[in-house]
């Protein structure tokens, strides 16, 4: 993945592990985590994802509440 130095933080979703519970969506202070309507994962869900990555502040709330270790956070 390309590394953009200007970005403050980045979250990556291991999409096929996502169970679509939306807990991450509910805790994101920037409201940037949402279910990716364009994708279906292996389980057939729309997995959680972040589109506007430049707004990510790397708070890791999404990762903290994720029950399935889907999310990795870099800062």
């Amino acid at each position: 993945m390309r590394c953009d130095i200007a970005k403050m933080a980045r979250v990556t979703f291991d999409e096929d592990r996502c169970k679509g519970c939306r807990l991450c969506v509910s805790v994101c202070p920037k409201k940037i985590v949402m279910m990716d309507e364009d994708k279906l994962n292996l389980k057939g869900f729309h997995p959680a994802n972040v589109k506007e990555m430049d707004k990510c502040i790397g708070c890791a709330f999404c990762a903290t509440i994720c029950p399935d270790c889907v999310i990795t956070v870099e800062k």
Partner: peptide, 25 residues
């Protein structure tokens, strides 16, 4: 950038069987 949050080593890669949103995970 450095990784600040990822799966801990003591937790295996195995996908857990719990229902979506169950806090066991």
């Amino acid at each position: 950038m450095a990784i600040v949050f990822q799966r801990p080593h003591a937790l295996r890669e195995t996908q857990m069987h719990y229902c979506p949103g169950c806090t066991h995970g």
